[in-house]
């Protein structure tokens, strides 16, 4: 795989990682995630035919559409820490994670025969997702974290698995997570049924 093509994409993923942690506006978050799915699609396109790779893009964007159908209240997005220090800490943590990712990716790539760019891109998303899961307690943030993490995994997995059915089912999992996220956003407002 040509690194001239992948390096800017990895850079874009780093920007999306950072943005997901500092942005608290719902629409902007959706845009960042949409761009992130586009990057994932571009990376997978280098391995898969267009038709199959498009599943990632369409599946991801459909998930975002499901999530976007019920915009959450602003307080359902912000982290628990005071804004300024919280952001600094999160960015520092992300920096540490990037350090870890860039240092272990070559080793993992050697051990698993997965190309370095795909491994790095995947790990960036996986760890960024994990960081979000570790920091945030709001349901919608958890769903975004899981979607990010799964995107990272799908990049790496695309190298080893070329099944259309698996790709479709993974897209369904993304969609399912989005539905659950949407449900969790609105569940408390639904009629008490117990």
């Amino acid at each position: 795989m040509d690194s001239w093509f992948t390096l800017p994409l990895i850079g874009l993923l780093m920007v999306s990682n950072l943005s997901l942690l500092v942005v608290n506006d719902w629409r902007r978050l959706m845009v960042i995630l949409a761009v992130q799915y586009l990057v994932v699609f571009s990376l997978v396109l280098s391995l898969w035919p267009l038709g199959m790779a498009a599943i990632k893009l369409i599946g991801g964007w459909m998930s975002l559409a499901v999530l976007a159908a019920h915009p959450p209240q602003p307080e359902a997005l912000s982290a628990n820490q005071p804004p300024r220090w919280g952001t600094v800490v999160r960015v520092l943590a992300l920096g540490l994670i990037w350090l870890v990712v860039f240092s272990i990716s070559p080793m993992l790539s050697d051990a698993t025969f997965i190309p370095w760019p795909m491994m790095t891109a995947g790990m960036l998303l996986v760890w960024s997702g994990l960081l979000q899961l570790g920091i945030y307690r709001q349901p919608i943030r958890v769903i975004i974290g899981l979607l990010t993490l799964l995107s990272g995994f799908e990049i790496i997995y695309a190298v080893v698995e070329f099944s259309l059915l698996v790709a479709g089912l993974l897209a369904a999992v993304n969609l399912g997570l989005a539905f659950i996220g949407s449900y969790l956003l609105t569940a408390s407002e639904m009629e008490d049924q117990t």
Binding site: R137, P139, Y183, L184, A187, Q193, T194
Partner: peptide, 20 residues
């Protein structure tokens, strides 16, 4: 998830951790 966090109830952290 809907079983553990039924309509009308605020989703708890346990349900989210379960999902994660």
């Amino acid at each position: 998830v809907p079983l553990l966090s039924p309509p009308g109830e605020k989703p708890g952290q346990g349900t989210l951790r379960f999902l994660i």
